[in-house]
Amino acid sequence: MTETPHHPALVGDRVARWLGVTLEAAEKDHARIRMTLGEEHHNAFGMAHGGVVFAFADCCFALTCNDPASDGSTLTVASGVDVNFLSGTRAGQTLVAEGRLVAAAGRSAVYDITVTTDDGTLVAAFRGRSRTVAVKGA
């Protein structure tokens, strides 16, 4: 029997809950999530709003750059991102975001997040830069 993945960064994440994010994989420097697009996620052109795709990729970024086994003494946050939207979507499609570490140096790192439809069509390429900081009081 496969254990259901867990990530503390999803606890209390209201945006991920609104998006309908489901966690498929969570380990150090790697995460995979999915969501099904509803009408509420689409713009006036009938495609997923860019902000929704960005938020979905950003959720994956947070899960990828924060180790689910962390002791809570540090937090890794975004210091900058670039996103390229490559194809449109339609309501009812499932999106999958997968994130991986590209490079790390000290407290800074670069991660790539790909957002695809469940049939493999690339919707967006997201590159995130992160910084790890100490959690006050931890």
Rank of each mutant, 00 (worst) to 15 (best):
A31W: 02
M47I: 13
T64D: 06
T116V: 09
L63I: 07
T116W: 01
R100L: 06
S108R: 15
D82T: 14
G38P: 10
D71G: 11
W18M: 14
K136Y: 09
A62K: 01
H30M: 04
T76Q: 12
R100Q: 14
V135F: 02
T117A: 01
F61G: 00
F85C: 01
L101S: 10
D71F: 11
T89W: 05
R90V: 15
T132G: 03
F61I: 00
A48T: 04
G88F: 02
A16H: 12
L23P: 09
V115F: 09
G72V: 13
A31H: 02
E3H: 03
V15F: 12
A97W: 04
L19W: 08
S130C: 09
C59N: 06
P5T: 12
V83M: 08
T36M: 07
T22C: 07
P68M: 04
V123Y: 01
T94Y: 09
L86H: 09
G20V: 01
N66Y: 03
M47R: 02
L75T: 15
N66D: 09
V81N: 13
P68L: 06
R32I: 08
R17M: 07
N66F: 04
R129S: 15
G20P: 06
A103Y: 14
T4H: 07
T2M: 14
S70Y: 03
R131D: 02
P8L: 01
D82M: 05
T36K: 05
E24G: 05
R34K: 14
A57W: 11
K136H: 12
T89E: 05
E98C: 10
R127F: 04
A25N: 06
N66V: 06
M1N: 10
F56E: 10
G128V: 06
R17A: 14
V53T: 13
H30I: 02
D29C: 00
V123W: 05
L86I: 07
A55T: 15
A125C: 09
H41K: 02
T121I: 06
P8T: 00
D13I: 08
A104S: 11
D13K: 03
V133Y: 04
G92D: 15
A91F: 05
L95G: 12
M35I: 00
T4R: 10
S87K: 05
V77W: 10
E98Y: 04
I113A: 08
G72C: 08
A138E: 10
W18K: 07
D29P: 01
A124Y: 08
R100G: 04
N84W: 08
A48M: 09
V77C: 06
S108I: 09
D58N: 07
L19R: 03
D67R: 02
F45E: 10
I113Y: 07
T36G: 02
G50M: 03
V102R: 11
G92P: 15
L23G: 04
T64Q: 08
A91I: 15
T36L: 02
L10F: 01
T64Y: 06
A16V: 11
V102M: 10
T94I: 10
V115Q: 02
H49N: 15
R32H: 02
M1T: 11
C60D: 04
A125T: 08
L10K: 00
F126T: 11
H7Y: 06
A26H: 04
F45T: 10
V96T: 04
I33G: 05
T132R: 12
